[in-house]
Simulated assay, not measured.
Amino acid sequence: MSAPVNGSSTNGEFSRFLKPGIYAPIPTFFLPGSEDLDLSSFEAHVTRVATAGAGPLIAGSMGEAIHLSHAERVTLIHAARKALDAAGLSHVPLIVGTGAGSTRETIELTKEAAEAGADYAIVIASGYFAGALAGNKEALKAFWTEISHKSPIPVMIYNYPGASGGIDLDSDIISELALECPNLCGVKLTCGNVGKLTRIADVVSGSDFSSKYPRKNQNAPFLVLGGFTDFITPSTYANGHGAITGLGNVAPYSIVKLFEISVASRQDSSLLPEALRLQGIIGRADFTIAKASISGTKYLLEKLYGYGGLPRKPLPPISSDAAQALWDHPHTQDLVRLERELSGKVKVQ
């Protein structure tokens, strides 16, 4: 593995900087009929998103990780790295979802991802035994503690109650993990809890956090990231670090611009009205498009870029009526216009 731009060696491997910003959980595309991996569409989309300034996350919830084999995950990591390097984006890190049913398999997946070229792992707790885990603070802490300790790459906590049987980590658990586990590099909060984000960000943004609780990998600070785009500006003012958002697949230029101008407005208050204007457009679109889930996002990608296709069964496709309503919705159209403007493509199909 060659050294990336601005990278440093850790555990005998090179890592790429994990920086605040916008990250997009990349869908996994499938060929019609066979449901085999559609790697050409996948590589094109990884490049499109990264070119816009959003970092790619592979094999997450949007990527239908639960529908992928170990070998397919490795194939996607290789394909994403190849596409980024070919596009002159060798400095862009790859975050890869490695959560599984057991701690043992999660560690196995994390090691496989690292060997395939992943820079960072993001791990969700399985919801299969949520009844036993949800109220057990010790078991939940032990899960991420062991994985981060045994992982060759930094690990991010993924808190998504909707995909983990209702398991919802509170700010105390996440803050304690941040203090106790030097190989943890952040948290994604798809619970949408702004108060939780504020409390965790206050802990890790303190002036003495980095000196008292240094990370194992100097390129991997502890980032506090939202899972939606409807509170990017407010979270920026609470020392949040951006978002990992499915909407980043549809409108990466718009969301990256929103984050950048929100950060800049902290130094130049004259920029705040524009940040709030963008936040309104993007927040409304996120609310509307998120309800259509993975199939809706894939439909919009098909409409905008000519690829998307269907999710893997048993996940159903979006109905034709719902798809048309999603495209025609004024929140969607406002976002499409904004994205066309910011990406330099002004025509709306």
Score class of each variant (00 low, 15 high):
residue 267 Q to V: 08
residue 97 G to I: 01
residue 329 H to L: 01
residue 340 R to C: 03
residue 244 I to G: 02
residue 32 P to M: 03
residue 39 L to A: 08
residue 19 K to W: 05
residue 302 E to F: 12
residue 174 I to L: 09
residue 37 L to S: 01
residue 17 F to E: 13
residue 280 G to N: 14
residue 70 H to P: 00
residue 232 I to M: 02
residue 86 A to Y: 00
residue 338 L to C: 06
residue 155 V to D: 01
residue 113 A to P: 00
residue 60 G to F: 15
residue 328 D to I: 11
residue 97 G to V: 00
residue 256 V to D: 01
residue 139 A to F: 05
residue 135 G to R: 09
residue 124 I to C: 05
residue 75 T to N: 12
residue 112 E to K: 12
residue 322 A to M: 08
residue 15 S to L: 09
residue 325 A to S: 11
residue 102 S to N: 04
residue 264 A to M: 10
residue 34 S to D: 02
residue 276 L to T: 10
residue 66 I to W: 13
residue 11 N to E: 05
residue 181 C to F: 09
residue 251 A to C: 05
residue 185 C to K: 13
residue 221 P to K: 07
residue 93 P to T: 02
residue 213 Y to D: 00
residue 213 Y to R: 11
residue 118 A to M: 08
residue 210 S to I: 07
residue 161 P to C: 04
residue 28 T to D: 08
residue 121 A to K: 07
residue 284 R to Y: 00
residue 226 G to N: 11
residue 91 H to Q: 10
residue 222 F to K: 02
residue 225 L to G: 04
residue 33 G to H: 12
residue 103 T to Q: 07
residue 221 P to N: 04
residue 317 P to N: 13
residue 227 G to P: 00
residue 331 H to I: 06
residue 32 P to R: 13
residue 235 S to D: 07
residue 30 F to P: 04
residue 88 G to Y: 08
residue 24 A to N: 03
residue 27 P to Q: 12
residue 182 P to R: 12
residue 347 K to D: 11
residue 13 E to H: 14
residue 194 V to A: 15
residue 98 T to N: 06
residue 43 E to T: 13
residue 48 R to F: 14
residue 283 G to F: 03
residue 219 N to K: 05
residue 276 L to A: 07
residue 341 E to D: 08
residue 255 I to K: 03
residue 11 N to S: 04
residue 184 L to K: 07
residue 91 H to S: 06
residue 84 L to Y: 01
residue 310 L to E: 11
residue 1 M to Y: 14
residue 151 S to D: 01
residue 175 S to T: 10
residue 26 I to K: 05
residue 221 P to W: 08
residue 139 A to N: 00
residue 222 F to V: 00
residue 29 F to Q: 02
residue 269 S to K: 15
residue 230 D to M: 05
residue 262 S to R: 10
residue 3 A to G: 01
residue 117 G to R: 03
residue 293 S to T: 12
residue 128 Y to I: 13
residue 172 D to V: 11
residue 300 L to Y: 10
residue 192 G to H: 14
residue 164 S to K: 10
residue 311 P to L: 07
residue 141 K to P: 01
residue 318 I to S: 01
residue 86 A to D: 08
residue 127 G to T: 03
residue 306 G to Q: 07
residue 226 G to Y: 14
residue 191 C to I: 12
residue 43 E to N: 09
residue 21 G to C: 09
residue 275 A to K: 07
